[in-house]
Design a protein around this nucleic acid. Structure first.
Lengths: 153, 153
DNA sequence: TCTTGACTTGAAGTCAACTTCAAGTTCTAC
DNA sequence: GTAGAACTTGAAGTTGACTTCAAGTCAAGA
């Protein structure tokens, strides 16, 4: 009987909107029990799970990746600290990679700004990874707080 | 008569798909002349403009921001090296900010992974900027090449 | 001249991660 | 017992940056 949290409570304590909770449930990231009247009741474990989701989103993982990670948690028992540590261990490499990519871009920029070249095939800035073809439609994502608008220009 | 480049040529040399070129034109980022038969013919200046767009996209600017920047270029003459340098100078601060944000996240992660806490309101990773409410719908963007998929987990 | 490939348009589709809506149901406090 | 807040559902809308489609028009070489 530890699953007595209502949608509103979970929403308030996790910071996710109720609509997001339902969305995550449809996507298989969280689950919920039901009352006799078909309303959701959450186990408190869901809060830690949501904290993990929030963290992973900040690191830049997609919901699919997050679900894959969550799927490796043990069934039948509450995850331990060690479980959470295990599945978030890979984040560091990811962040390191992103930081490095950004740093390369910035350092290239320092050289490039001076020359004003912006050559499509030579400039590090306009062509960072020496490819020409971008692929696929749709959007590419960055964790929310890392992409603040810059005031001037 | 320097505007003799066809869509296909500009697409090939810029790496942008023809559909993207038309899209950018509608959004006011580039322009093109027309033949008597209404087909587009580009001035070669458009290539450098597209290089700027590509670079700005990599840095993470939105098309609206890019258009705003391009709008400050002088009319009537081809932009000089100095012009390009001027409008891309602000990128460095932007990149620095993003790198810093990522680094903070990573450093917080080092402490957090060990403790496995992932507390919704205390953990740096699950709540990097001490906010609770995310705002608005839609997507948040990171420059394409900076967000590679990670293989395991 | 004819064919074929390149081009034109507006409208609609895509992707991720949600939010909003409408229309109805349940829970809880009085 | 009832008001009203909280909940339910599926469907459709939002955002940014494009792509894809259908139905036709243009350009260039043989």
């Amino acid at each position: 009987m530890a699953d007595q949290l209502t949608v509103a409570e979970v929403a308030a304590r996790s910071g996710f909107a109720p609509s997001a909770l339902r969305f995550y449930e449809r996507r298989g990231l969280i689950e919920a029990g039901r009352t006799s009247g078909n309303q959701r009741r959450y186990h408190r474990d869901v809060l830690r799970r949501l904290a993990f989701i929030a963290a992973a989103r900040h690191v830049g993982l997609t919901l699919d990746e997050i679900r894959a990670a969550l799927d490796t948690l043990p069934e039948g028992r509450s995850p331990t600290r060690r479980d959470w540590t295990r599945i978030s261990r890979h984040w560091r490499a990811r962040l390191d990679a992103e930081i490095d990519a950004l740093r390369q871009l910035r350092d290239g920029l320092d050289g490039c700004i001076g020359c004003g070249c912006l050559s499509l095939d030579r400039c590090v800035i306009s062509n960072p990874d020496d490819t020409v073809a971008p692929r696929g439609p749709g959007a590419v994502f960055l964790p929310r707080p890392l992409h603040p608008p810059v005031e001037d220009l």
